Amino acid sequence: METLERTQTRIGLTEVDRAKVGTLIRASHRHVMDLETVLPWADGIDFSRNPKLETGSWIYGTEYWDALTPEQRNELLWKEVARDVSMFIWLEQSLPPLYMNYANQEPFGMLPEVYEYLMIFSREEITHTLMFRRYLDLAKLPLFDPPRGAYAQFTRQLPEMHPVLGILSTLMLEWVAELNAIYLTQGRDNEPLTRKMFHEHHIEEVRHIAFGKRVVEYFFENGPAEVIDRIRGSFAPLYQNLKNEVTYNRDIARHTSFKFPIAEDDDAAVERIRQSENNRRMNGERFAEVDTWFAKLGIL
């Protein structure tokens, strides 16, 4: 995508969407997340309660789940949440330098609404990263390794490419991760601080997703057809791989206090888990919104 990368740096929006981004900007300025007060940190975390739906465990509905004790199941749910929080941390700490790079590429030619929202987006992601790190420290949960491939993409590859590719990549990861978190953690019986953390995060992420959709849709309607075809071809497998990693992540075997029943290199077992009846049902429910949108763009 050499031509796209070097000569078409402007992020376009329709007049209607510029007004919509202005609405997002005003909402962001009215409600700024404060790290000290956003969560009742002093209340601590109730580890006797599950942080997410039990049926949302990656291995629920398989013989591996059936073989665990109640204590092991509870621990597994907490470690799965730690992995999801870790993914948010690695993604969100990489976004401010990426988006500031885009703003600096075209400091005078960029639409003012886009420039301001890139700044707001970056500020909010910094606060999210600090909140998630504080949560892991308070819960004494591990920070998992960065997502394979994705972290290098955000820190080394996307800064050299067209901003729309960075915004589309961000949208894909954030939207999938956000739908997953909200689907799993907002039950009445889920651990209260964990539930509130993901809810507060969701309020700002909804605005990020709305911004990304406006930018990407404009580009797909107005960009060079040959470039868009290449984007479709490259993002389809990335999207499927992302959903696979959210459905089951092999790194979990390194972090449980008990011997995990699936080896990291057991590809057949991993595939059976990802294709379990429970996981297929959940994926159809929690990712229906983003599946529909990607299909509309011709990416699926």
Score class of each variant (00 low, 15 high):
Lys213Tyr: 15
Leu136Glu: 07
Tyr135Leu: 06
Ser86Gln: 13
Leu118Arg: 02
Gly56Thr: 09
Glu221Ser: 10
Glu200Gln: 14
Arg195Asp: 04
Leu68His: 05
Ala139Tyr: 02
Tyr117Phe: 12
Asp291Met: 07
His128Leu: 08
Pro107Glu: 00
Phe287Trp: 14
Pro159Cys: 03
Ile262Gly: 05
Phe258Lys: 05
Thr7Arg: 13
Arg123Phe: 08
Glu36Asn: 05
Gln157Phe: 03
Arg188His: 01
Phe294Ile: 12
Leu184Lys: 04
Asp46Leu: 08
Gly187Glu: 02
Asn74Phe: 01
Val176Thr: 09
Ala103Met: 04
Ser86Arg: 13
His255Ile: 00
Arg123Val: 10
Met131Thr: 05
Leu39Ile: 01
Val270Lys: 15
Gly109Ile: 05
Leu173Pro: 07
Pro51Ala: 15
Arg230Asn: 09
Asn101Thr: 07
Thr14Val: 12
Asp34Trp: 02
Leu158Gly: 03
Ala82Phe: 04
Glu277Ala: 11
Met172Lys: 07
Lys213Val: 14
Glu271Met: 12
Phe132Cys: 00
Trp175Lys: 12
Lys243Ile: 15
Gly166Thr: 09
Arg250Asp: 03
Glu285Asn: 12
Asn241Asp: 09
Pro96Phe: 10
Asn278Trp: 03
Thr23Ile: 05
Arg230Asp: 07
Pro107Gln: 00
Glu178Met: 14
Trp65Asn: 00
Glu200Val: 11
Phe198Met: 13
Ala82Met: 02
Glu125Pro: 13
Leu77Trp: 13
His255Phe: 11
Pro192Asp: 01
Glu217Arg: 14
Ala42His: 10
Phe258Tyr: 12
Asp43Cys: 06
Gln153Pro: 00
Asn241Ala: 11
Ile209Met: 15
Thr9His: 05
Ser48Glu: 11
Glu92Cys: 11
Asn190Phe: 01
Lys52Phe: 15
Glu191Leu: 04
His201Asn: 08
Pro192Gln: 00
Ile299Leu: 07
Met33Ala: 11
